[in-house]
């Protein structure tokens, strides 16, 4: 298998700077989209994106610095949950600003990068036959409906009122 190097090298200052600049670019685009789509004040949502970017930065850095074989997703999730935990001194500040950034604004920008990035797979996609496309569609639908139906049954069985 090509491209297979164990990569637990330490992150240079230059690398961290690259992360920061990318996150700043992402934040600015998201804040602009957030303003056009939802009219949230730009300064508040910029602080919100700053908080989210900082959590991300710490998460990806920890993934590479700590010796555990654990994805940054887990670190980022834990930091985010703890910061917003009811009763934490940070929670009021974090919630106020982060709530000014709509999830959909982040998703819209994120998926623009996804769209450009997935163009690379286009030729391989075209080479695969219609049968594989049928199976993919069915697999995605099965995953979604499987989870939705089980969740619904458990929610109803445990008496969670429909809101």
């Amino acid at each position: 298998m090509p491209d297979l190097i164990d990569g637990s090298e330490n992150v240079s200052v230059h690398g961290i700077l690259n992360w920061i600049i990318l996150l700043v670019i992402f934040s600015i685009i998201t804040v602009i989209g957030n303003y056009i789509g939802y009219k949230h004040p730009m300064t508040d949502s910029l602080v919100g994106m700053g908080i989210l970017s900082l959590i991300t930065l710490v998460g990806v850095w920890l993934e590479r610095e700590l010796p555990f074989n654990v994805s940054s997703i887990l670190y980022i999730s834990i930091i985010g949950i703890v910061l917003a935990f009811p009763g934490m001194p940070t929670s009021k500040f974090v919630l106020h600003y982060v709530s000014k950034v709509e999830l959909l604004s982040i998703v819209t920008v994120f998926l623009a990068y996804v769209g450009i990035g997935m163009g690379k797979s286009w030729d391989e996609f075209k080479a695969l036959g219609w049968r594989a496309i049928v199976i993919t569609i069915l697999v995605i639908a099965a995953t979604y409906y499987g989870a939705a139906i089980v969740a619904h049954i458990v929610l109803v069985a445990t008496g969670v009122p429909a809101v």
Binding site: L22, L52, I55, T56, L57, I76, G80, I106, F110
Partner: peptide
Amino acid sequence: LFIGVLIAKL
């Protein structure tokens, strides 16, 4: 990297 921001918001 941006996945992280999405995850952080969630």
